[in-house]
């Protein structure tokens, strides 16, 4: 399996609010961030909750508070499966 993103890449998270389980929190939907590191390969949580195991790259993605909340000078880092991400 080869990863789609590299460290330093700019990415955008999905803005879809699915009606199934997901590990992409509301506050981080449709936001732009930077790939900080790879975070292993793990079964996609959305599918695993439905009994389907599909291993996928996970990335540590860092967002500025400004991007997430429109205010603040801190950063927030999340682990995001490749399915949650697209090119900026």
């Amino acid at each position: 399996m080869s990863e789609r993103y590299r460290i330093g890449d700019r990415v955008r998270t999905s803005d879809v609010d699915p009606d199934h389980h997901t590990r992409l929190p509301h506050y981080a939907r449709g936001k732009r961030g930077t790939v900080l590191d790879r975070d292993g390969v793990h079964p996609l949580a959305d599918l695993r909750a439905q009994g389907i195991v599909q291993e996928q790259e996970v990335y540590l993605v860092r967002f500025t508070a400004q991007e997430l909340f429109g205010q603040g000078d801190h950063s927030v880092t999340l682990s995001l499966w490749e399915d949650y991400l697209s090119d900026e």
């Binding site: 975070d39 880092t77 999340l78 682990s79």
Partner: peptide, 12 residues
């Protein structure tokens, strides 16, 4: 001081 928040939202 720069604050870095880490959300343990997935496997880590």
């Amino acid at each position: 001081t720069e604050i870095q928040v880490w959300d343990a939202n997935a496997e880590s």
